[in-house]
């Protein structure tokens, strides 16, 4: 696809997402924070449902060799990075989606969070230029490397290749786990309602 085509598809996708998130007030930060602090699950349920649909969708297409999976080495930097991110998103009261969506609604705090996300990224680029960690995509090998705290690359595609079992099989297992969590939340909610009544 041409660059212009890619830009148009991405913009169209983003616009639909922006509209749907704005109308539904979905927030990924709230999906985690509200479940932890208030034991309310309005956003958590939505997140789980989306993950169930995506797990089945992605692994079905991966089974037939379709789709563009994300390919890069992973390791300790994902745990530390998202840990820092997780604290940050709760403090900022918005994640990467809601900063854009709330900015579109005229929320100056969200615009401020975005500016400082960019500044944080720039500061990290300076730090990275000293220690070159985590390894740049061109230095990734796909194999575990303990020296750089990297575990290599593994996903539904590699699982299918290595085991000969279709990716959808593993997808169904993950779907069942997500469904179990979703049903647990439903049971908790109905218990709460009954208790209150």
């Amino acid at each position: 696809m041409s660059v212009i085509g890619e830009i148009l598809v991405a913009f169209l996708f983003g616009s639909v997402v922006g509209l749907l998130v704005q109308r539904s007030r979905f927030c990924n930060t709230a999906a985690l924070r509200d479940a932890i602090l208030f034991k309310t699950y309005r956003n958590t349920e939505a997140l789980l449902l989306a993950m169930m649909v995506l797990t089945i969708g992605f692994t079905t297409f991966i089974t037939f060799g379709q789709g563009h999976t994300m390919k890069f080495d992973v390791g300790l930097n994902q745990v530390i990075g998202l840990f820092i991110f997780g604290i940050g998103m709760v403090l900022a009261g918005a994640c990467t989606v809601s900063t854009w969506v709330k900015s579109g609604e005229g929320n100056v705090g969200a615009i401020w969070a975005l500016i400082f996300t960019f500044i944080g990224m720039f500061l990290f680029s300076l730090l990275w230029s000293f220690d070159y960690w985590p390894p740049a995509p061109i230095a990734m090998t796909g194999e575990p490397n303990l020296e750089t705290l990297q575990l290599g690359f593994a996903n539904a595609e590699t699982l299918q290749e290595k085991t000969g079992i279709p990716a959808i099989f593993f997808g169904l297992i993950q779907f069942a786990v997500l469904l179990f969590i979703y049903l647990k939340i439903q049971a908790k909610k109905s218990l709460k309602t009954t208790g209150e009544g």
Partner: peptide
């Protein structure tokens, strides 16, 4: 929070 999100994304 914004700074932490930016740093966290790039690290991860």
């Amino acid at each position: 929070g914004g700074l932490m999100m930016g740093i966290g994304i790039r690290l991860a």
